[in-house]
Every structure is written in C-alpha cells, then in structure tokens.
C-alpha cells in the first residue's frame, strides 16, 4: 500500500481540491490567499503603516467612513453619475450604431470621425468637460456618457456588419418588409455584439467616472480618494479602491446575467 503522505498521492489530491473549488470557491480561495499575504507583509513591519496599511486599519477606515456617513453619500452620488452617464451613452451608442450599420449615408458621414475619436482616452476629456460644464454633475455625465457611447457605438456597428448574410436572405425570401427585417432579424442578430458592448460600457463607465471625479469634483468616490491623498490616508484609499473593485465586479455580474437572459440563444 502506498504511503498516503508520499508526494505521488498528495499532488493529485491538491489538484482535485482546486478543481473542486468552482463557483464561489475559486475567487474566495484567491482572496483568502492574498489577504493572508497582505496581513503577513504588514504584520512583519516590512513597510511603514502609512504607506501600506494593514487589512485591519483598512477595515477600520472603511467602518469610519461608513459611520460618519460620507461612504453612503459618495456611493450614492457616484452610482447616480455612472448610471446616468451609462444610460445616456448606451442609448446614443446603440441608436447610432444601428444607424451607421444600416444607413450608408450616416455611415459615410460619421464612421471616419468616430473611429478617429476612439483612441482619445477619457481622462484627456476631463479638462474640456470642466470648461464646458463646470465641476458639477454636468461634466461627470458628459465624460461618462461620451466614453460609454463610443464603445457601445463601435460594438453595435460591428455587430451590424457581421450579421450572417443567410439570415437576411432567409428573411427577404420569406417576404419580410424592410422594417420587420430590421426589428426581428437585424437587431436580434446583432444583439450578442450589442450586449458585449454594453458590458464593456459598464466597465468604462466606472473607469471614466473615477477619472472625472479625481480632478474637479466635490463629492463621489473619486473625490474622496483625492481627498484621502491630501491627508495621506492610505487606509481610506485602500478601502475606497476595494469598494470600487467590488462594485465593478457586482455590476459586471449583473450585466452578464441580464445579457445571458436577453440573448438566450447565444452559447457561452
């Protein structure tokens, strides 16, 4: 009989344990590992607490912000900005994407210009937005919706370009009018790309929002990060960063779930 402690047996067992950690198990394993690493690095006193705070002080900073009420307010303000910007940007993006995909004139007039805009990073727009809309809500909505719009437009347009010809042939030889073809064949056929674009748009909404809030804002999670820098409160910064990460992941899960419901015929 083989010795159970021999490496030959231990390795498959470990592999089995990893393979079994599906669903929530795998991320939890990873988070637990990183948290432990973080704890030991800070507990060993390798770096000053003010530069690299311990998990415990980050937790306390989070609790502190929650108790004094800034966390809830900032969260609400930021979420409202991201949601409003995303709504405006995605509606515009899908609409214009459907138009540039379907109408040759609109495509000829807009595609080269919009393609040229795409490489400009959202952060570069913040100064312009502040001049145009001030440091209030306007500039945030502008930066977020602009970023979301470009990505959603691009993906929608691509989805329209790659509609399998056979669907259009089938639809036309079955006597569908152009309008019915557009509504019941073209849009569903492009839907997987549109949904992928919306998912990217959500991620970019958070990205560009924080960029906009970091410079020229008086509230929101990004502003609070900037404020924490002024007081060298790295513990608060870490708490806010973790919150942003968790928030983004949750929203992404939600969008993925909704997308799967919406384009139920698409695998994967």
């Amino acid at each position: 009989m083989a010795d159970p402690a021999s490496p030959r047996r231990v390795r498959p067992l470990l592999a089995m344990g990893l393979a079994g950690a599906t669903g929530l198990g795998r991320p939890l394993l990873s988070f637990g590992f990183i948290l432990m690493l973080w704890f030991f690095v800070t507990a060993a006193g390798l770096v000053p607490e003010q530069i690299f705070p311990s998990p415990l002080s980050v937790w306390q900073a989070g609790v502190e912000m929650a108790e004094n009420g800034t966390l809830a307010t900032d969260l609400a303000v930021s979420m409202r900005r991201a949601a409003t910007g995303f709504a405006i940007g995605s509606v515009l993006g899908v609409t214009l994407g459907l138009l540039t995909g379907r109408v040759a004139l609109v495509r000829a007039l807009l595609n080269p210009f919009l393609t040229l805009l795409r490489p400009i990073p959202a952060i570069a727009l913040v100064p312009v937005a502040i001049v145009w809309f001030g440091i209030g809500e306007g500039s945030k909505y502008f930066v977020v919706s602009y970023t979301v719009f470009l990505t959603v437009w691009f993906n929608t347009h691509h989805g329209m370009e790659y509609i399998p010809e056979i669907y259009l042939r089938a639809s036309r030889s079955l006597g569908a009018s152009r309008q019915r073809e557009f509504l019941t064949v073209v849009i569903p056929a492009a839907a997987p790309h549109i949904v992928a674009g919306l998912r990217l748009g959500v991620a970019l909404a958070f990205l560009s929002l924080v960029a906009a809030e970091l410079s020229g804002a008086s509230s929101g999670l990004g502003y609070r990060l900037q404020e924490a820098r002024q007081y060298i409160r790295t513990d608060r910064m870490f708490a806010l960063l973790i919150l942003l990460g968790a928030l983004g992941a949750c929203v992404d899960l939600l969008v993925r779930w909704a997308g799967r419901k919406l384009v139920h015929w698409q695998q994967g």
């Binding site: 056979i166 669907y167 042939r169 089938a170 019941t184 064949v185 569903p188 839907a191 384009v263 015929w265 698409q266």
Partner: peptide, 10 residues
C-alpha cells in the same frame, strides 16, 4: 438552405 437558416431567437 443547407445550413437551415432558422432564426435562433425564435
């Protein structure tokens, strides 16, 4: 069509 061309969303 050989590839059926059914609409997968219906």
């Amino acid at each position: 069509f050989q590839q059926y061309a059914l609409f997968p969303w219906f």
